[in-house]
Amino acid sequence: MEKGKISAYQMSLIMYPAVLATVLLSIPALVGKLAERDMWISPIWASVLGYFTVWISFRLHNQYPGATLIQMMEQIFGTLLGKFIGLLYLLFLTFNLGIMIREYTELTVGRALSLTPMPVIIGSLLIICAFTVRSGLEVIGRMAQICVIPIIFFLILLTLMISPDWDIERMLPIFANGLQPSVNGALIVQGWFSEFSLLLFMLPYVKDPDKAKKWANISVLAVTLTMCLVNLTTLLVFGSITGKVVDPLMSTIAYISIADFFQSMEPVGIGIWVSGSCIKIAIFGYVLSLGIAQWLKLSDYRPIVLPLYFTLVFLAQLVVKNRIELNHFLATLFPYYLTTFQTAIPLLMLIVSFFLTRKHAMRVKR
């Protein structure tokens, strides 16, 4: 069904924007409300779930090599139950894509294209993503190679350019109220670390599997450091009001002004962010298309792609009513919703698989 191959390095580059692209702009505000001055520590606690999800993914992949998560479900739970759980997972992915696209649209409308109709903004992005997905996983991997390094470079450059406006006092004292605030913030962040379960859809197509685990863990580390850096930068600029600022990262970028040379860096930031969002929506669309095709036992996932993305144009407008409802959902139910489907279900599969293997071994001994 998928003929292309990617390297372990490309896999790690895909996962970087797959986790960060949409949440990077909202996470300082979401975490700042709970963790306050310890908000930069929260991603460190949350990263434990990321490493745990990577471990689960590789254990499942080693037991069922060549199978994706959807195919594993039928092998572990049986045809009927496996089909049912697989359907729930596909519905989750569809809704999750709708939320991602709506996040992208709300920021684009709010920051750049306030007079452009929402369907036009959504449709223009999804056309690019749909043709990328139809081209296969290998093209998504090459796209990540082109886009991710400039994204990382821009974030480092942003940090250096805004550093003269930092006020270190805004992060002190650390742990003034103990560990609880940073842990509360981590409970919000952990949901996005669970997205590393997408590895289960890419590992069968990695051409150097011996390097895959190393690069997956490097990707978790890179995501963690980026979240810490963004949270710390916004905290040192806005201080205690970070949790009340709309799009703190983009507001920080808009704050940059160096002499008469660097003015209004916001359009550059939006451009970099759009490229990351495109990769994220493309890889999730690929996973959903591939999963539907495997669930239906089709020979190819490509005929599904265009109808799927056409449906997402309408779904993204229906998932929430407005920006306020979206932010409330992201800060309350959504992180746990992500963890349930992307870490808890694979963990359950691993546990059931362990007992099935043990039961089979005991039968062989008899």
Rank of each mutant, 00 (worst) to 15 (best):
C147L: 15
C147Q: 12
V148A: 02
I149L: 09
I149V: 11
P150H: 02
I152L: 07
F154G: 03
I156W: 04
I156Y: 06
I156M: 06
T159D: 05
L160R: 12
M161D: 06
I162A: 04
S163A: 15
S163W: 14
D165V: 07
W166V: 03
W166P: 00
D167W: 08
I168D: 13
E169D: 13
M171G: 09
P173K: 04
P173S: 03
I174E: 00
I174K: 07
I174C: 05
F175G: 03
N177G: 07
N177I: 01
G178F: 03
G178K: 03
Q180T: 15
Q180R: 14
P181R: 00
V183I: 10
N184Y: 10
G185V: 00
A186F: 05
A186P: 01
A186M: 04
L187F: 13
I188P: 00
Q190V: 12
G191S: 04
W192E: 03
W192R: 05
F193W: 03
S194W: 09
E195D: 10
F196H: 06
S197N: 07
L199M: 05
L200H: 01
L200Q: 05
L200P: 01
L200E: 00
L203I: 07
Y205D: 05
V206H: 00
K207R: 15
K207G: 12
K207F: 12
D208P: 00
P209W: 05
P209A: 05
P209G: 10
D210C: 12
D210A: 14
D210W: 13
D210I: 14
A212M: 08
K213N: 11
K213Y: 13
K214F: 14
I218D: 06
I218L: 14
I218G: 07
V220T: 07
A222E: 07
V223G: 03
L225N: 02
L225P: 03
T226L: 07
T226G: 10
C228K: 07
C228T: 13
V230W: 03
T233F: 03
T233L: 10
T234P: 01
T234M: 04
L236G: 00
L236P: 01
L236A: 04
L236E: 00
V237D: 02
V237R: 07
F238N: 00
S240R: 14
S240L: 15
S240F: 15
T242W: 05
K244L: 15
V246D: 08
D247I: 11
L249I: 09
M250S: 08
M250F: 10
I253S: 01
A254R: 07
Y255K: 12
Y255H: 08
S257P: 03
S257W: 09
S257R: 14
I258K: 11
I258F: 13
I258C: 06
F261A: 09
F261D: 08
F261V: 11
